[in-house]
Write a protein that binds this DNA or RNA. Structure first.
Lengths: 136, 136
DNA sequence: CTTGACCTTCCAGTCATTGGAAACCTCATG
DNA sequence: CATGAGGTTTCCAATGACTGGAAGGTCAAG
């Protein structure tokens, strides 16, 4: 299996596979005599694992830890759960932050005529944030 | 007012002020004979405007447009509202995405013992995503 | 005159990719 | 056996929005 086939099988772009190898997230692939990378089914599994973890928003750094735990047959689930819970906390913090931004903007947009008149409460708020804003 | 004072007055880091100038987000500041940047109260206002807009999650590109509209006395509020609404849509899309990740992870974490046993449903899902996942 | 706090520029790094250039390999066809 | 298309290789650069540091110039107080 060369890199293009591994890409198709795993859903991870060939370019990205090389990148993951270069940063040490995945082990170095074997090579043919002429230098082409060669992949086994197990390596494709790792790529799928990485892809799934990225889709859940884990950072590369955390995925390194998860891959390590995954490859370790004697891993304890406690550590995995700890990483997952920490990640959930971060996701929730980010969600709350974006939610606060959206709430503020919705309020401002609601009071904006949205017509040809030059008087715009959105710009007014950007100039000097008013009374009802929680986003610092 | 030099850059340090402008930073204190606007809440925008001196380093960041120089960066904003370098990318053309704010106009080039005046200079003293010895080359120090000089800021007026109006320029500090722009910096505050930028800071507020960033805190609402607007991209630099969008802020460029907003600053343009803000400085234009004959601006129409329609354009500002359009930008704000587009931004709200993006925020909501991002929120939904993170929410889906967090929901999936919460489900997985709930079924994970989190003890010394090596059997971990979180890793199992990363290996091969199960039945209940919506995050692609 | 010296010290320390400021200011200047430029360059590099962050994170997770993506894009392109130039050169090499493989395979099927003519 | 040559040719061409479509792989693959490496390396370098860019994205967005900063942040950090190095090396050097300036200013005000002591």
């Amino acid at each position: 299996m060369n890199i293009g086939e591994a890409a198709k099988a795993s859903g991870v772009n060939a370019k990205l596979i090389r990148y993951y190898e270069s940063i040490g997230l995945i082990p170095e692939a074997g090579r043919t005599a002429s230098g082409y990378r060669v992949y086994t089914a197990q390596e494709v599994n790792i790529l799928r694992f990485v892809k799934r973890a990225r889709s859940l928003g884990f950072s590369i750094e955390r995925i390194q830890m998860l891959v390590g735990l995954w490859r370790d047959k004697h891993r304890a689930s406690a550590e995995v759960k700890r990483i997952a819970l920490a990640h959930i906390d971060e996701l929730e913090a980010k969600i709350a932050e974006l939610q606060a931004m959206a709430d503020t903007l919705r309020e401002l947009a609601a009071t904006c005529h949205g017509d040809d008149r030059p008087d715009c409460p959105i710009l007014k708020d950007l100039e000097s944030p008013g009374c009802c804003q929680e986003v610092a």
